[in-house]
Amino acid sequence: MVARERILDVALKLFRIYGVKGVTMFDIARDCGMSKKTVYEHFSDKQSLIDLGMQQLLNTHSAYFQETHTAAENAIDELVRSMKYITNMARSFNPVMLFEIQKYHPDTWKNIENFQRDCILYGITENLKRGMSEGLYRQNLDLNVISRMRQLQLDAAFDQLQYPPDQFDMSAVMEQITAHFILGIATIKGHKLVNQYLQIKEEE
Rank of each mutant, 00 (worst) to 15 (best):
A172K: 13
I182T: 04
L154Y: 06
R150S: 05
L183D: 10
L198M: 10
G190M: 06
D166W: 01
Q162E: 08
A157M: 06
L128D: 07
L121C: 05
P165K: 12
N114E: 11
R117L: 09
K129W: 05
K129A: 01
L136W: 01
N140M: 05
N114T: 08
R130V: 02
E113H: 13
D118L: 07
P164L: 09
M174W: 03
T178P: 01
V194N: 04
G123N: 09
E175N: 10
M149T: 07
G131Y: 12
F158E: 06
Q160A: 11
P164G: 08
Q153P: 00
L193S: 09
R150K: 09
I177Y: 07
L143V: 15
T125R: 13
N144W: 02
I177D: 01
Q139D: 12
G190Q: 03
A157S: 14
D142S: 02
L152M: 13
Y197D: 05
E134M: 04
K129F: 04
T108Q: 15
F158Q: 04
F181S: 09
D159R: 07
T125N: 07
G190V: 05
G135Q: 02
V145W: 06
L121Q: 06
Q167Y: 11
N195H: 13
Q139V: 11
R117T: 10
Y122P: 00
A172R: 12
N144H: 04
R150W: 03
A179D: 12
R117H: 04
H191I: 01
C119W: 07
T178A: 03
D107F: 15
D118Y: 02
I185C: 03
L193K: 09
L141K: 03
L121Y: 07
F158R: 03
Q151H: 10
Q151T: 09
N144C: 03
D159W: 08
R150G: 01
T125P: 07
N111K: 10
Y163S: 08
P165T: 14
Q167E: 14
L198Q: 08
